[in-house]
Amino acid sequence: MCSPGEPVELRHEPKNPADSNAIAVYSARGIQIGYVRAERAPLILLAMGRAGVSAIFQHKERWGATIRAHLDGSEPVLPPIADSRAADWPPPGSEDADWWPDEEWPD
């Protein structure tokens, strides 16, 4: 429903029966993709009333999605992509730095 870096809209739902601080997250296509976590909603609501909040979709998670939000009205950006394999590669003594193991068949 979203691509990394796409803007998402945060909408306060003061009449939400579960939580009057509820903030729904909508994709750029107007489809609701979830809610901001309840413990973070009050801080974000405060910022929404002041400088404004800008948010983007970062990536899909098993439990939902990660979004990046700036609480000062500035535009958030995606962090650099980190390749966890690169930190310990190539292994000591290896002469082929361009070879990467297959993640499904590591042997």
Rank of each mutant, 00 (worst) to 15 (best):
V36N: 04
L43W: 14
S27Q: 09
G93M: 03
A86W: 05
E39P: 00
Q32T: 05
E75M: 07
R37G: 08
M48H: 02
P92N: 09
C2V: 03
S3R: 12
L10Y: 01
L46E: 14
R68W: 02
R50A: 13
L78Q: 01
A47Q: 01
R85H: 06
D107L: 13
E104L: 15
P92D: 10
R40T: 03
G30C: 08
D88L: 11
G52P: 00
S94Y: 08
D19F: 13
R37W: 04
I81Q: 08
A47N: 07
R37C: 09
R50G: 05
I44M: 08
G30Q: 08
P80I: 09
P17A: 01
L46M: 07
M48D: 01
A97E: 06
R40E: 14
D83L: 03
H70W: 07
W105K: 15
V36T: 10
R37L: 11
Q58Y: 11
M48S: 07
P17H: 00
T66Q: 06
D96P: 00
R40D: 15
L43Y: 12
P101A: 10
A69D: 04
A51Q: 13
S20Q: 06
P4H: 04
A38S: 14
A65K: 00
D88H: 14
L45Q: 13
F57K: 04
E6L: 00
S3E: 08
W100R: 15
L45Y: 09
I31Y: 13
A47G: 07
S94V: 00
R40S: 15
